[in-house]
């Protein structure tokens, strides 16, 4: 299975994404945002970073890139699409996932490890986790406060589209790092082939990097093909 890692001007987690995908045994290649075809690829990974310097809004300008029509096609065809951090912001700005990511409530760029609870494990991205397992994953963002109107939130909850939620690691009560509604850290689409999340699983795939809780997410993608 070959993954396209989409590079926008200002992406900076592209190499981390490749490291994680390849560590899981997947093939990955970089694709510049001006490309108009993802022919030959099976999945698309939108990495973190600061596309276009977060100008206008985080992810807003990258969402208009030529390659995003192909990412939209992947999403509609049921191919796996993952957006992490800025990649999640790009997916919401493109309307591929609902809602928006607003400035953190405390207005700080927050870079730390957080608890992230797995809400469902019937997706390729989460099949190797236990349901309600709490992962230790790093976050690094200034605009991560998930927002959607009441109707959209009700639909997300009703259809079980919340995949990851911030949760206490050691019983702390201030575990929500950014003020996300319903503690939402990651969501999927109705079909379950598109994942958007603010925490960085690709930065948690090696003990040397401080943890491996992100690795099963990538290994689960491999299992989709071989298993």
């Amino acid at each position: 299975m070959k993954w396209a890692i989409i590079r926008f001007p200002g992406s900076n987690c592209d190499e981390d994404a490749r490291f994680a995908l390849e560590k899981a045994g997947l093939k990955a290649e970089y694709v510049w945002h001006t490309e108009t075809s993802l022919k030959g690829f099976d999945g698309a990974f939108l990495p973190g970073g600061f596309s276009y310097g977060d100008y206008l809004r985080a992810g807003a300008l990258a969402a208009k890139s030529p390659v995003m029509e192909e990412v939209r096609r992947f999403a509609h065809e049921g191919r796996p699409v993952i957006g992490v951090c800025n990649g999640f912001q790009v997916l919401t700005e493109a309307g591929i996932l609902p809602g928006a990511l607003l400035a953190n409530l405390n207005l700080h760029f927050t870079c730390k490890e957080v608890g992230v609870r797995v809400e469902r494990n019937d997706l390729p991205f989460t099949r190797l986790y236990q349901k309600r397992q709490v992962l230790r994953l790093p976050i690094a963002h200034a605009e991560g406060r998930y927002y959607a109107d009441a109707e959209t939130l009700a639909r997300l909850e009703g259809e079980g589209l919340v995949v990851f939620r911030y949760a206490p690691l050691k019983g702390e009560t201030d575990y929500n790092p950014n003020g996300s509604l319903h503690d939402i850290a990651g969501i999927t689409n109705e079909r379950g082939n598109v994942l958007g999340m603010m925490p960085h699983p690709e930065r948690a795939v090696d003990e040397v990097l401080g943890g491996t809780d992100g690795l099963p997410l990538f290994l689960g993608l491999l299992e989709e093909v071989t298993g």
Partner: peptide, 8 residues
């Protein structure tokens, strides 16, 4: 319409 995000 292109530049404003109608979500928020």
């Amino acid at each position: 319409r292109l530049l404003a995000n109608p979500v928020m």
